[in-house]
């Protein structure tokens, strides 16, 4: 491409990167500074606006002595469980749709596609009514279940498994492997990109969720971090901005690490999915 001729381009790229990053930096700085400093260096703006001078870890200590620790634990717990179960169950369903022959396969595939064309948040309220009747409010089951069955992950696995040569499967049959053996020992080890993409989809669904946990798990015991941060209560001195910043930082940190680490897979695999889909 005609890139090298334009020297302003690296500068523009850097400026955009820094602009997007600025709010995150501001939050990190806010998490490390004393409460009274949060709005202190704003008028006039100075280097101190974006650089903590009296750094302290008091906010972090205070945050983890509060109910927020429980909320962060809940988020981690429900996400780990949902991703683990979601991966295995969606992979199995994708395997069935890709390699098994049975009556009504097209219809089942149609149901899967319909299930991911109906946005989950749009049906959260009617589902909440059903779950309430089933007594699943304020339970981990209620929080986790919707995150496990993900039509998009099933679709993704099916597409990926269709690309695995059927000769490998036939060799497995000749060797006397069971269907589960073929799935577990041949298909799963070959499907690392699909695991990563499906894992990211399941992870983000569960970690970023707001409406569903707001409805199904309002109790402090089961409240997740993404909901808890919006409900920080004021104390006698007003809103505890220092704690909000610290909490925001920790809630964002985990997905930021994961997305950065898997960035390459994230873009390539989802892009090819977009092409095929």
């Amino acid at each position: 491409m005609t890139t090298r001729r334009f020297s302003f381009r690296p500068l523009a790229a850097a400026a955009c990167g820094l602009l997007f990053f600025l709010p995150i930096w501001w939050v990190a700085v806010g998490a490390l500074r004393p409460r009274e400093d949060i709005f202190r260096y704003l008028s006039p703006l100075s280097w101190r606006t974006l650089w903590p001078t009296d750094t302290t870890i008091a906010n972090i200590v205070m945050l983890f002595q509060s109910d927020f620790t429980r909320a962060l634990f809940n988020s981690v717990f429900v996400t780990v469980v949902a991703v683990a179960f979601g991966l295995i169950l969606c992979a199995m369903a994708g395997f069935a749709l890709a390699v098994m022959r049975f009556r009504g396969r097209e219809f089942v595939f149609f149901l899967i596609v319909v299930s991911f064309l109906i946005p989950f948040d749009a049906i959260a309220l009617p589902l909440f009514g059903l779950m309430l009747d089933a007594g699943l409010q304020n339970t981990y089951i209620g929080l986790i279940l919707p995150g496990i069955g993900n039509g998009l992950a099933v679709f993704l696995y099916r597409q990926f498994f269709l690309g695995i040569p059927k000769e490998l499967r036939e060799a497995g049959v000749v060797d006397g492997m069971s269907t589960f053996g073929i799935f577990w020992r041949i298909y799963l080890p070959l499907s690392r990109p699909a695991h990563i993409t499906a894992g990211l989809i399941l992870f983000l669904f569960q970690w970023q969720a707001y409406l569903w946990p707001l409805l199904i798990a309002p109790d402090t015991k089961y409240k997740v971090a993404a909901v808890a941060i919006a409900q920080f209560t004021d104390n006698v001195e007003g809103t505890q901005y220092n704690l909000i910043f610290t909490a925001a930082f920790f809630i964002a940190l985990i997905p930021m690490i994961i997305i950065t680490y898997f960035q390459k897979y994230f873009t390539s695999s989802v892009a090819s999915m977009g092409g095929k889909g």
């Binding site: 997007f20 970023q208 707001y210 993404a226 964002a252």
Partner: peptide, 8 residues
């Protein structure tokens, strides 16, 4: 990176 930040 901001894409990792939950909307809430």
């Amino acid at each position: 990176l901001p894409a990792a930040v939950p909307l809430s």
